[in-house]
């Protein structure tokens, strides 16, 4: 574990931005997001969690799949420089790994590159993610529900803790290993530093609310399918997509053509299961025409369906949707209500 003194942070960031496209938390409150930075002054180092997750860089809200002119088709997948993400919270680092399972890989056709998303892979495969331990989880955080924790080392290439005077960094993956090897002139963390990590960790964990067991919820969910409780929990939902667009693991998208027949581009842009037209077929038939069905789909997908395929929850407990929902439809409350529901098997 190496130690980057805060007094050296500026130089560290400067050097980093020379070799990588460096992304870090920028901005306050509702405007906060991961954006490309050139120097340390641009970084918001005190932010609990950015409103927009790093997903917005790897799977941007809108991107051009290709441009066409006549029969000629041009596409660009590769970013110019590999990306380095500074200050990703453990929930977000985990969310990138979850997204990679869907976008970068294919459970159903693991060996066929035609089923991997080239744009995602071009960005994600070379990117280095530095997971920054969460010293002060927010009251909306619930990463402990789905197997996460503020100091989790489960995801990311590097792991760092911010102490009063320094950032202590250790590698988590081969990529991280290689990165650390390439650094020179930094001290190794002392015993005292390690003690302070333990102390910070303990304090951070004390901020979290008691966890609800997501695995129990997963087991319970199929029984709730016809439960009138879904009417109750979905009643106030207005079916906007604020929760999904702000979610670090929602990946649904639409593909659209823009321009004219002879010249234009094919783009993809986020879409959301909360919209009735998401599933509406050309015939007019809609398999999920009711708000209740759509809310149920979203909850089921996060807490059940994904688990059936990949063995873990698609919710990382970052709490963004809790904060952003215009009608305060709190996913934590929904989960608790579902668990308490007396649904017939």
């Amino acid at each position: 574990m190496i130690k980057i003194e805060k007094s050296n942070f500026g130089t560290f960031i400067q050097n980093l931005s020379a070799d990588y496209s460096l992304f870090a938390p920028v901005g306050e409150g509702q405007q906060s997001a991961f954006r490309e930075v050139k120097n340390a002054e641009q970084i918001n180092t005190h932010i609990q969690i950015t409103q927009n997750s790093p997903k917005t860089v790897f799977l941007p809200q809108t991107e051009v799949l290709f441009e066409f002119s006549g029969d000629d088709i041009q596409s660009e997948e590769k970013p110019a420089k590999p990306m380095f993400f500074w200050g990703v919270r453990s929930c977000d680092a985990k969310s990138l790994n979850l997204l990679d399972k869907v976008m970068g890989q294919s459970k159903q056709r693991p060996d066929d590159p035609a089923f991997q998303d080239p744009y995602w892979k071009a960005r994600f495969d070379d990117a280095i993610i530095l997971t920054l331990a969460c010293n002060e989880p927010a009251s909306t955080c619930f990463c402990n529900w789905t197997g996460g924790s503020p100091f989790s080392k489960d995801a990311g290439d590097l792991w760092a803790v911010e102490t009063e005077t320094a950032y202590l960094v250790e590698p988590l993956s081969e990529k991280g290993e290689a990165f650390v090897k390439g650094l020179s002139g930094y001290d190794t963390a002392s015993e005292k530093d390690k003690q302070s990590i333990a102390k910070l960790k303990k304090q951070a964990e004390s901020y979290l609310q008691p966890a609800v067991d997501a695995e129990t919820l997963k087991e319970k969910l199929p029984q709730t399918w016809e439960d009138p409780l879904w009417d109750e929990v979905s009643a106030k939902c207005v079916n906007c997509s604020a929760c999904a667009f702000i979610c670090p693991t929602c990946y649904c998208f639409d593909i659209q053509d823009e321009g004219k027949k002879d010249k234009g581009k094919r783009i993809r842009t986020w879409d959301c299961c909360m919209f009735p037209i998401f599933t509406k077929e050309a015939s007019g038939h809609n398999p999920r025409s009711l708000a209740r069905e759509r809310v149920r789909q979203r909850v089921m997908h996060k807490f059940r369906y994904f688990w059936e395929i990949y063995g873990e929850s698609l919710c990382t407990g970052c709490g963004r949707c809790v904060r952003v929902c215009p009608v305060n439809l709190d996913i934590r409350e929904v989960a608790k209500q579902l668990l308490e529901a007396d649904s017939a098997a």
Binding site: S106, A114, F115, C252, F253, D254, D271, R304, I309
Partner: peptide, 11 residues
């Protein structure tokens, strides 16, 4: 190719 999500039913 199993990414965009709209044809999802159950898992």
């Amino acid at each position: 190719i199993g990414k965009c999500g709209r044809c999802n039913i159950g898992s």
